[in-house]
Amino acid sequence: MSEIKDKTKKMEVSRRDFIKTGALVTTAAVVGGCGISKEEFLQQHFKELTQEDVKNIKKRLETEYEKEFGKKFSVSFKEPIPQTLFGYGLDISRCIGCRRCVYACVDENNLSIDPQIHWIQVLEMEKSKGVNFHHANLHYDREKVPDDDHFYLPVACQQCENPPCVKACPVEATWKEKDGIVVVDYNWCIGCRNCMAACPYGARHFNWKKPSYIDPKTKKKSELNEDTHYLGNRPRPQGIVDKCTFCVQRTREGKYPACVEICPVGARKFGNLLDPDSEISYILKNKRVLILKEELNTQPKFFYFYAT
């Protein structure tokens, strides 16, 4: 251990160095016991990966997923687009609570079917009470929507500029990218769930089990989306936290998020906050906008608005 002490004095120890030296002793025992590959155990923090590392991880994961799911996957490491800060708008005066977005998100992002994980939670609220989380119903069940006395408020990750979840992570497994997307490295997450406690929006979800893609009721197996991003919708291991990434695998390719594409009423808007001509910039300038739990100073980049 003396070697490590020397390095800390110089403040240049990396996690990898540490593991290599100090922890290699335990590696054999631990790795053997957990069935995790040596490469994954020794993987560096995302921000320190070299191009070579990225190539190897990509190959390793793609091989692993193909073996497991019987089809070819692509795991992208695409970086943020320069001069881009993503913002999202949701028109409360349009949303009808049909939940199409919830399931489009599940399919696009390979969310666990069993146990069920939904990144989007659509809340039904009484028109007479306004936006009020104490009178919100997540489990409304109606023949037809919208109900005339209610309005609907879908909530997912608010992609805060000042994200409390990031600060709560003891190992820096979650951070805000330059395009504003808060991401999780599933290979780095230790499953402590501090971030979940810190998130005021209930937007983080824990994979208690290895995700299953078979519906427990219908026994129907859903097809996985093979177009994935390392920081987004790639198949998740057990015991980690995941969350909405504004469909990083789509939006960094210039596409709209899946929830925007599916919304039958056009209540969902998405674009670049730094572009004064984007639809999201137009909304911020011209419409009545609200953000959730403003008093917490989380500075969401998810804006609710009234277009009418």
Partner: peptide, 12 residues
Amino acid sequence: MMKNYNKYTVIL
């Protein structure tokens, strides 16, 4: 390839 981080990572 099942992973079970908690055992070793928490210690580390």
